[in-house]
Design a protein around this nucleic acid. Structure first.
Length: 259
DNA sequence: GTTGAGCGTT
């Protein structure tokens, strides 16, 4: 029982999910299992990883069977140094699908509470003292997908430049206002997408783009010279495949001979 | 090879 998350979630009923943040990118479930298992019965450990690279995203989910154990692990492992990095252990708030989470407790759809007495009895909560006065950093509405954009668009440089306009600030200060640039960027992108959605049949006409298409006259020395030939057509989509194939065959021998 | 706020898979 070392490989978690290989066959998906085994059973997420009456389990307590713990979110482990700030873990190293190379930390695996096997590394966290012994740590968390020492404080209680760990049902499953899942570490979200990137679809492209497959690398860890920097956080993991640890499922406990009992709340007291989970709470204990949170209090004991939260802030501890793991693999040279301080990890933050806290109860998971957001569920993957239709899981109802209450204080990290995962309950299935509508328990049998309906059949029982409607009286709202104050169920025994777990020590709020632990996470009662502890106010974690406020997270933005956006939760996933920002990483991809940031890596792609290098929002970092953009942020620096933006701040430069105002005044020279220490790099540490940037940490606090880091989300602002990202939020604006995301919002704009969302709006842009919304516009496209508004006109499904209309394909964002960009005539200028076609003309702007790189003729690459100077790139005659490049190999994909024949491609530019058919590029001249405005809509060679359907014929593109066949045309290219035929052209390729035709050009293949010729190219060989040329060389 | 890098990064570092955040919330999850068959």
């Amino acid at each position: 029982m070392s490989h978690f998350g290989r066959t998906g979630p085994p059973d997420i009923t009456d389990t307590y999910s713990l979110l482990v943040l700030n873990v190293t990118f190379r930390t695996t479930a096997d590394d966290l299992f012994p740590l968390f298992d020492k404080y209680g019965k760990v049902v499953d450990i899942f570490i979200p990883r990137d679809r492209r690279t497959g690398d860890s995203r920097g956080f993991a989910f640890v499922r406990y069977k009992y709340a007291d154990e989970a709470q204990m692990a949170v209090d004991r492992l939260d802030g501890t140094l793991v693999d040279g990095r301080e990890i933050a252990v806290q109860f998971a708030k957001y569920g993957p699908n239709a899981e109802r989470i209450h204080k990290g407790r995962i309950i299935e759809k509508v328990p049998r509470s309906r059949g029982r007495s409607r009286s709202r009895s104050p169920r025994p909560r777990y020590r709020d003292d632990y996470y009662g006065g502890r106010d974690y950093r406020r997270r933005s509405r956006s939760r996933s997908g920002d990483r991809y954009d940031r890596d792609r668009y290098h929002g970092r440089e953009r942020g620096y430049r933006y701040r430069s306009r105002s005044r020279s600030i220490s790099p540490d200060y940037d940490r606090g206002h880091r989300g602002r640039g990202r939020y604006e960027d995301e919002r704009q992108r969302c709006r842009s997408r919304s516009v496209e959605s508004t006109s499904p049949p209309r394909r964002s006409p960009s005539p200028r783009r076609s003309v702007s298409m790189r003729r690459t006259p100077s790139s005659g020395g490049e190999s994909p010279d024949r491609r530019s030939h058919h590029d001249r057509s405005p809509t060679p989509r359907s014929l593109s495949t066949r045309d290219q194939l035929v052209d390729s065959r035709s050009a293949s021998p010729r190219n060989s001979i040329d060389e």
